[in-house]
Amino acid sequence: MAEIKDMQRLDDARRRLLTLPAVLFILAFAALPLLVVLAYSFMKPATYGGVEWQLSADAYVGFLFQKDIFDDSLTFSSEYLLIFARTFLFGIATTVVCLLIGFPTAYYMATRPPQTRNWWVLLITIPFWSNLLVRTIAVMFIIRDEGLINTVLLSLGVVDQPVTMIFTDFAILLGLFYSFLPFMILPVYASLEKLDFRLVEAGYDLYASRFQVLTRIIIPLTWPGIATGSLLVFIPSFGAYVTPLLLGGGRHLMIGDLIALQFGSSRNWPLGSAFSMILMAFVMLALFFQIRKNAGGVSHG
């Protein structure tokens, strides 16, 4: 008995040792940098970028208030708050649209014969991993005033002037939807594929309506996939940087661009750090909800 316990302890130690390098590497090059940002968010900006080593909450105050340049008095300013609200709204809208379109697609995929299913998965996997910058550029080329869509519309005589799509909110939403749709389809599909369709049949046999089957059987049982997919769409669209820059033309900012701006031409690292921390707080909140909802889903199923 003692021998087995010793061996198990040895095995534990060995497996712990194997895991350690990856954990340390991520702590050093992913977690520690986040702590640096947290620290920077409580300092004062240096004139040419970087920070001055002085404790200050100015960055967080600056999120909500504007300091008068003459008498240092604070007035409420909703400028940044509005950009945050806009970004949040865009994130939610993208997630909802991706779910509404992605769920039926995943359901269709999961109900194909196994051989066909694999082809569908590959078909969705390719855009999932394809270069996001290139995919966004592709959207830009298509919706430009001189792009394919407008050229076709003009030559068909549907419109006599190009429809302005690029550099609008519509363009950003389209770009976000296009970028992250596969991130919704694949996790939802993974859940639906494991779903025992006999339960759905049983539901129908017991005179449940389509809607009841969907809300009482399918959604609860596939909730983990729906939650994961929503998170995978929400997080990157909430933190989107390239999409609004390319398709919004820099005029329709989202938080991601605002952060990059502070570390670039605005040279206010503490403010950018504070924005990042607020963004991270939202992400943590979303993660927290996902974990709770996931636990809830399991107990119901």
Partner: peptide
């Protein structure tokens, strides 16, 4: 789960 922009500026700061 960390948005790319945050990873980017955190590494820049680091």
């Amino acid at each position: 789960v960390v948005p790319e922009i945050v990873t980017g500026i955190s590494l820049l700061s680091f």
